[in-house]
Design a protein around this nucleic acid. Structure first.
Lengths: 229, 229
DNA sequence: CGTGAAACTTGACGCACATCAAGGTGAATT
DNA sequence: AATTCACCTTGATGTGCGTCAAGTTTCACG
């Protein structure tokens, strides 16, 4: 193997070797999958797929961030989730042959791989361990989405925002949390408006429960009070 | 094989032979799974598992209906979904070893099977086709839940109710639809209150878009008008 | 490093819908 | 068939938060 082809291969490898879906496989299996994957890069602000598009396969994110969102009847945006490196998307069309039901848009310059539907299905057939990883991922994603739906339906805006910050804090294991998105996106994720987010955060700060520095950093001063609304 | 044991086996069989998760397997494979499954019956109104319970395994519903719901911080109920015969539940704990995050309560007398966690995981390892079925089920369930969250977040109560009826009509392929649950449950599913459901349905009827007969039957007279809110 | 467009904040206003209440209807259980 | 309890409906009232608007800050990009 000459220098050129090795470099070439290295270019594709991280998509396979780094992501949880594949990183437990042995070297040979990974090499095979590397051969299936098509690599691509996208600049910030680009739409990878749209509602109604037919699926190109499974997208596996290796670098950068992607937001997945839906548009409601009246044209409002609802942010479903944000993909971090190692996450994948496009799964609905993998099994149903249905077109996408959401939009995927890059938040930053992105590197990703695509594995085509047929080949991915074959992989799942041949490697039960991949299926199990995917099932595990789906089940937590499902639980998260159900919880989000329940909160939007049953909790007030204060509570949703407070719970979101608390979840972030637990996830990042810090009392100083970084919001991973803009007010607008956060609002659409939590089923409210940017104005309300602003107001509630100001209110939390006035109560001495948090301290804001910059629009994305929040220091939690009194978690218990926060969780009591 | 004597009469007794054959009857005994028949008792367990439908859980395996009827449900989509298994009904594509051959006779021998099914027999094996039948051997793993523990059968159980429950009267109406019984709680099968609660939020916080550790998992007994995968529950496969064979007869009757079960509602899955969550309780919010302030004690309000959110209906997540209703299981029909052939559906399964308890999947979160299958992969995460996490306790349940919701409640399962029978709406009618119920017959179901339980397959224990370890054995189910082995099945998924040994039979990729089962994994694929489960992945397909998860992906549609995920899409449904995301859509529900988006609607609760972005649409008005009228629209949510109208869309729900329209979905039911498409699903049941009829212009006369049967609501599968009480106002209370429907309200919690759609993120509103029984009073609002009552009022909106009355309004729809006054507009001549629907006709109600009994509290569970709705005839759609003007679907287009309904979908314009 | 400068600049223009987003993003963010704060205020005023209105309304959709939750809440509380009370009466009517239906269905499950005996 | 009677009784009871849950479900459903309709009305009156209050309010959380969405909307519109205007000013300020931030930051992406040339």
């Amino acid at each position: 193997m000459n220098q050129q082809s090795r470099l070439n291969k290295e270019h594709y490898r991280p998509c396979v070797s780094l992501v949880p879906l594949f990183n437990h496989l042995d070297k040979e299996q990974m090499n095979y999958i590397v051969g299936l994957a098509h690599s691509a890069t996208h600049p910030r602000g680009e739409i990878i797929y749209s509602d109604g598009d037919v699926s190109k396969g499974l997208y596996i994110l290796h670098k950068g961030r992607i937001k997945i969102y839906r548009l409601s009847e009246n044209g409002k945006e609802q942010l479903v989730r944000i993909l971090e490196p190692g996450d994948f998307t496009g799964e609905l069309s993998l099994f149903d042959a249905k077109p996408h039901d959401a939009y995927a848009e890059t938040l930053e310059p992105v590197e990703l791989c695509v594995i085509q539907r047929d080949q991915m299905q074959q992989l799942l057939q041949d490697h039960p361990s991949i299926s199990l990883r995917m099932l595990a991922e789906f089940s937590t994603r499902l639980a998260d989405t159900e919880q989000r739906a329940a909160r939007i339906a049953m909790e007030t805006a204060d509570t949703r925002i407070a719970l979101y910050i608390a979840d972030l804090s637990e996830q990042q294991r810090q009392m100083i949390v970084q919001l991973p998105m803009s007010r607008k996106d956060l609002a659409s994720h939590l089923g409210t408006t940017p104005e309300t987010i602003s107001r509630k955060l100001t209110f939390f700060e006035e109560q001495g429960w948090i301290r804001q520095s910059g629009s994305k950093t929040i220091e939690i001063l009194d978690l218990d009070a926060l969780l009591l609304v």
